[in-house]
Simulated assay, not measured.
Amino acid sequence: MSLLIVCLASSLSYGQAQEIHEKFQYKASQFLYEEKCSKCHTLERVFAEPKTKNEWRICITRMMGKNPLWITAEEGALIIDEIVNGRKDTIVATSQTKKYADVQVLFIDRCTRCHTVNRVLKQNKTREEWQETILRMRDNAPELFLDEDIPILTEYLTERGKMMRDDVAAQIMVEKCLVCHEVGRILLERKSRKGWEDCVVDMRVLARQKFQKDWFSSDEFNLIVDLLVKTQGS
């Protein structure tokens, strides 16, 4: 009787193990793009924006250039063929990326799908750094950018970024500094960068003691110091 129970238990365990094995059996990718593209992007993102055949070729060629060891030339050609000839639902006859004469509309369309306006415009970057950033964003989402967008957005962000950075800093000063100080008191001060940094550090410590929380973020600290040095540096 005991032997029968043991055999039945063993049989059940084996059957359960088989069921689990079948349930979690690895399923190989049907297409190469599933294996290669999904390492960095979800397939939903990859196919979110329909492209022309040429845009797909450009997009995949760029991905190959980022890591030639991950996607070889032969694999790239196969992926292009799989998408261009096998995914007709992602192919359009003409480009879906719109052109804009107004650079502000261009900026909003290209950049604010993933980022807030403030996050972009308060960055303190040189022209070269902005160009590098835009090229990186283009590599991450090639369907959103035209080649002609790069110099236009670089120029806009370089010039507008300087203005917006000061605007954001001024707004932060109103919210953070004028809570305790009269504006006239601040405007009468003249300090070096080191002097303003020390001053804002002291205010940060006092505010933390008073409000029991960080009153300035590190980013806000830098924005305020930069504006004070620019307007009231010694």
Rank of each mutant, 00 (worst) to 15 (best):
S95A: 06
E129L: 10
N140C: 06
A73W: 03
A169I: 02
K194Y: 01
R208F: 11
I83P: 00
C199M: 14
L146Q: 09
G86A: 10
K162N: 10
C199N: 12
T158C: 10
Q131D: 10
S192K: 13
A101R: 11
D149H: 10
E75W: 02
E197Y: 03
V92I: 05
G184L: 06
R127Q: 14
R165D: 02
V174H: 09
D202M: 12
K213D: 08
Q131T: 08
R119A: 11
I186V: 15
K125Q: 09
Y156P: 02
N124Q: 12
N85M: 05
V92E: 03
P142Y: 03
R138W: 04
Y156L: 14
V174L: 15
L178H: 06
K191F: 08
Q104N: 13
T126E: 09
F107K: 00
L135R: 10
C177Y: 03
W196I: 01
L106R: 01
M203D: 02
S218Y: 06
E197D: 14
T112P: 04
D198P: 02
Q171L: 14
Q131A: 09
D89R: 08
L144V: 04
R185C: 07
V120R: 00
T72V: 04
F145T: 00
A101C: 06
S192P: 09
E132F: 06
E128M: 09
M137P: 01
P142C: 05
R127F: 05
Y156I: 04
V105F: 08
F145P: 01
A93Q: 08
I79M: 00
Q212A: 06
I172N: 04
M203V: 09
E197C: 07
K99Q: 09
V120F: 02
N124V: 05
V174A: 13
L146V: 02
Y100V: 01
R190V: 06
V84G: 00
L121H: 00
F145Q: 00
G76S: 11
G86V: 07
V117R: 15
R160E: 14
D219E: 15
A207L: 13
K194Q: 12
D219V: 08
G184W: 04
E74A: 13
E128D: 14
Y156W: 14
